[in-house]
Design a protein around this nucleic acid. Sequence first.
DNA 1: CGATCAATTGAGTGTGTTCAATGTCAGTGG
DNA 2: CCACTGACATTGAACACACTCAATTGATCG
Lengths: 253, 253
Amino acid sequence: MTSEIDEENQVLSPQGESSEDQSEQDCSECGAKGRCLREGLGEEQMQGLRKITRTLGPFKPGENIFRVEDKFKSLFVIQSGAVKIETASFEGTKLVDGFFFRGDLVGLESIGAHQYGHDAIALERTLVCELPFDHLESLCSFVPRLQRKLMIILGQKIRYTNDTIVHGRYMSAEKRLLSFLQMLCEKKIIEKSDNTGSVQLPMSKGDIASYLGLRPESLSRTLTKLQNDGIIRNQTKKIEFLDIKAILQQVCG
Amino acid sequence: MTSEIDEENQVLSPQGESSEDQSEQDCSECGAKGRCLREGLGEEQMQGLRKITRTLGPFKPGENIFRVEDKFKSLFVIQSGAVKIETASFEGTKLVDGFFFRGDLVGLESIGAHQYGHDAIALERTLVCELPFDHLESLCSFVPRLQRKLMIILGQKIRYTNDTIVHGRYMSAEKRLLSFLQMLCEKKIIEKSDNTGSVQLPMSKGDIASYLGLRPESLSRTLTKLQNDGIIRNQTKKIEFLDIKAILQQVCG
DNA sequence: CGATCAATTGAGTGTGTTCAATGTCAGTGG
DNA sequence: CCACTGACATTGAACACACTCAATTGATCG
């Protein structure tokens, strides 16, 4: 409830830049439309939500939206761009714990903690919508559908982690990579007509490897294998899908 | 499975058995006291919570509290005993996705889904307290502290998984086991005076292995290694801790 | 007591790791 | 414009840790 996010150490809206609507949120142009928390709320209910939110950014690649040990205050909806969260592992190296794209909520991982447990770092030019958690929580009490929506999102996050990471421990490097590509297809695919398409990768291969629980070298080898099999074409900042079906069908292979 | 959870498909209180208080819940004797959702609620607020809950069980070892694809209706607080949840992996084998002890909430994983995604199976004689989720949700709207508590618990679950399972992928079998033993210490330790103690294991070694992402053989070898190092004494249904400090300190080793 | 399942032990294999070298690319400055 | 730099990506060779398969021992229960 304290200050605007200002003056402290993080989450500063890069001054001159911060986008169009500063005072009250106009959701009509938001890139997260159709995937945001507010979906399904009536017009009157949205009023409340709009009042507590505001747009931050744009963040440049590498900039932090928040840092480990910053005081936990807000969730962030990604309006455009992409974000990763990472932590120091027990060995000291950085581990990537998640990627977030347009419409995703960043910060759920820290609900109930006093501080954020991750660094949240923009991977490309990124706009986010800040939702102060205290306000959001109060609002939830008055808007049961919002409360419900938030709980559903939390449940989905738990399940998603379980299905990918937890069960991923029993999958080969190739399967892990395939299910990652599958996720990318669903989130970012450009054109999937005729079994083909491509994705611009906002994150480094090293980040992907870390997220999948592999070494960069292992990921690289696996990528070249898929390329030799004619399933993808592997480039530095881009992956072309030559056989989308093969990727989507991998689940039970 | 012809359990006495019978007829419908799940979540029915085994007739003759269900313990003392059927009509309205008396929390004063509950084994989960001090760790339950209701902690921190005032007396008037607890009224509401008591009205919607009831005790189920006792479940015998191997009995289901609910099954995969049962309709999602309720969360369950464990009053006494222990529970595992498991799913079929993509290969068909069963994977253990979690263990739950006195005071833990089972079912969070399915919030927002229509059906449970796991089998929940009692590991020993177990009593649970059923919280119909619809009622709980409504109640949350009127009792902000309850809403908050539930969100906190969801956040904690996300963090716990991240800290153990996700980061565990980068740990050796020995470290995974040690951090599991650490968890057991915190949840179930009998006597930790003078750097010693022991835990009765409610689950099989195979279940532990599955939960840790290892093969039973690998776990067994790791257990014998720790025994040779003088850190534990490994028995079939029991582990003695000969050097608790070594276990608690492993985090950064 | 024998039957059944869980747990342990051994020997050999394999997938991903480690370490080291090479290659690619964007940015900088002469 | 080209050489230099530094981060990222790829490739190769040797290794290690956990896996696989198989046999043995140990517990539990009818």
